[in-house]
Design a protein around this nucleic acid. Structure first.
Length: 280
DNA sequence: AAGAATGTTACATG
DNA sequence: ACATGTAACATTCT
């Protein structure tokens, strides 16, 4: 579910809903394995009576600063989701953690596939040390992408999916960015020309910005798919150019979009726009 | 009813 | 050291 734009949407919504400044009166964990690195009990004690000072995002993580030495860091993985509202008598079996706030609301963590994780971290800089640059920040220049791509024999798609190389991209937005840049996902990174790198740089940023503007991508209609803390669904699915458009026409050349497997992930390309040079 | 699904990672192999 | 492949995590949907 959540790549950078979806996580950013959740963070934006949590801020809009006034999570900053709230105190966690009590925490309950219904499925202990969603807590990483500590026992559920001690985790609950650690966040109890703590005020949430700041809500932000790094890579695909939600980062909550508290009024203590520890930060609460969450990764939604595939189906994690936050719900922030007042009531709730019966809770869904997919809600694995709950935070009771000082304004009668509850912040609930919902995750059907149970891959998401909570971390208590003392030092966020250290925690995020091995993650790559944020593609929407100023530091991510064309030159930064040149450095990333340089001397890497790897295929473009797995390289861009690697969070240690660049943070925040996932299956959807890598396919979208490569389509926009007219690059084939198995193209070797080291063979890109400077002009191709420039184009890819623009494409990555454009694709992510548009997705954030649209509040993220919600695939399908099931309640299983992405929705933000307000319950809102992203509008970006209508703006996708290749992802899950197998069999449809490419909007540039009308050629038929095909699905291939790259790095064990479904990968969507226009075989006409995204051709592979002889350098592979 | 088998297979795939927005993600990550540990482990194996070349 | 680097590139690639497999399995696992757990559940739902097609």
């Amino acid at each position: 579910m959540p790549e950078l734009p979806e996580v950013q949407t959740v963070v934006n919504d949590l801020i809009d809903l006034g999570l900053c400044g709230r105190t966690i009166v009590k925490a309950k964990v219904h499925w202990p394995r969603c807590i990483s690195g500590s026992e559920a009990e001690s985790f609950c004690k650690s966040v109890q009576a703590r005020r949430i000072c700041k809500v932000s995002r790094r890579a695909k993580f939600i980062v909550l600063q508290m009024d203590c030495e520890q930060w609460l860091v969450i990764h939604l993985r595939m189906t994690g989701r936050f719900i922030l509202k007042k009531t709730q008598k019966k809770i869904s079996k997919h809600i694995h953690a709950e935070f009771f706030l000082d304004d009668q609301r509850r912040l609930q963590y919902h995750d059907t596939r149970k891959f998401g994780r909570f971390y208590l971290v003392k030092n966020p800089d250290e925690f995020f040390r091995e993650y790559g640059p944020e593609p929407l920040e100023k530091g991510f220049t064309v030159d930064a992408l040149v450095q990333i791509v340089n001397h890497r024999r790897r295929q473009l798609k797995p390289l861009l999916l690697d969070q240690k190389v660049i943070a925040g991209l996932g299956n959807i937005y890598v396919d979208e960015a490569l389509w926009k840049a007219k690059l084939h996902p198995v193209q070797r990174a080291e063979n890109l020309t400077l002009s191709q790198i420039r184009t890819l740089h623009r494409a990555i940023r454009a694709v992510l910005k548009k997705a954030i503007q649209n509040n993220g991508t919600t695939l399908g209609k099931g309640e299983n798919n992405f929705s933000s803390a307000t319950g809102g669904r992203g509008r970006n699915a209508n703006h996708l150019n290749v992802f899950r458009r197998t069999g449809h026409q490419c909007l540039r050349c009308r050629c038929c979009i095909i699905k291939i497997i790259v790095a064990q992930r479904s990968t969507h390309i226009c075989p006409s726009c995204q051709r592979l040079g002889q350098l592979s």
